[in-house]
């Protein structure tokens, strides 16, 4: 009888386990489908925009920086940006070639007008670093790539009549500042609207909310993202202005020569 109960218990546990595993697989499968939809959001082969970065410290004091940037997608994703404000760093430029290939480091160059020289910089600097003293890491500000994250569907959410998918996101390609991220995806345009970032202890670290959602020339985009660092009590707002998609951008702009010349407007 004891043996029978033991076998039954094992069977029940395995069954429960199986059901759980099966549930996780379903959630993962749906998460993957949502991830693919997000990845498929078309943001054009080229983009040109201006960005205002507002850094707000714990006392509410604001620092503003402005940049203009150009992006050209392809086998190699080429990015060029310049700081236009404040005046003392105007003209600082950054050029990068992202090769999308495993194990291949990006090429990056930095131009400093004070020294009038371009210097090669390492691309192995972690994407988990905060850029320009903001609350965004390089990874936060980039669109995730297919092999970098695992997405798990949690539930459907209805907020004021807008339907979202809630997903848990886990970084799978190396080190991360986060134990997980929880995002809301707009079911109509597949944009990531909200993300909560949890630290290694599982506590809420940061949250990002996108707003100013607009369709510009057929491309859905969020014109503003507000990141709040709950643990350090400071925040950053990224505002995108004058964005243009799929415009003709000569390859000449993605050269060290263009980086040193500075003017792109």
């Amino acid at each position: 009888m004891k043996k029978y109960i033991l076998v039954l218990a094992v069977f029940v546990m395995v069954s429960m386990g199986f059901v759980t595993i099966n549930n996780e697989t379903e959630a993962e499968k749906k998460g993957k489908e949502i991830f693919e939809k997000v990845l498929a959001v078309n943001d054009g082969n080229t983009r040109k925009s201006s960005m205002t970065i507002i850094k707000i410290n714990r006392r509410g004091k604001k620092r503003v920086e402005k940049i203009v940037n150009l992006v050209k997608e392809g086998e190699v994703e080429k990015t060029l940006f310049f700081t236009t404000y404040p005046a003392d760093v105007r003209g600082v430029g950054f050029l990068s070639f992202d090769y999308h290939e495993d194990g291949k480091d990006d090429d990056r160059w930095l131009y400093l007008p004070a020294t009038k020289k371009t210097r090669r910089i390492s691309s192995a600097a972690s994407r988990n670093e905060y850029f320009l003293g903001t609350d965004f890491t390089y990874r936060d500000a980039e669109k995730p790539e297919a092999d970098e994250e695992k997405w798990i569907y949690v539930k459907d959410v209805n907020k004021e009549g807008v339907y979202y998918w809630e997903v848990e996101r886990y970084i799978t390609d190396g080190e991360s500042n986060y134990s997980k991220m929880v995002s809301l995806i707009d079911q109509s345009n597949h944009l990531i609207i909200e993300t909560q970032y949890f630290d290694k202890r599982g506590e809420l670290m940061k949250s990002a909310i996108a707003s100013g959602i607009k369709e510009i020339n057929g491309f859905w985009t969020a014109l503003e993202t507000h990141m709040i660092n709950h643990q350090k009590n400071h925040q950053t707002i990224l505002k995108t202005e004058n964005i243009e998609f799929d415009i003709e951008i000569d390859d000449h702009f993605f050269t060290v020569m263009a980086l040193e010349n500075g003017v792109i407007d």
Binding site: D105, D107, R108, R119, R120, I121, S122, S123, A124, A125
Partner: peptide, 11 residues
């Protein structure tokens, strides 16, 4: 020359 190697740029 300048050659990036991981987090170092050798020049």
């Amino acid at each position: 020359f300048a050659k990036p190697i991981k987090k170092i740029v050798l020049k």
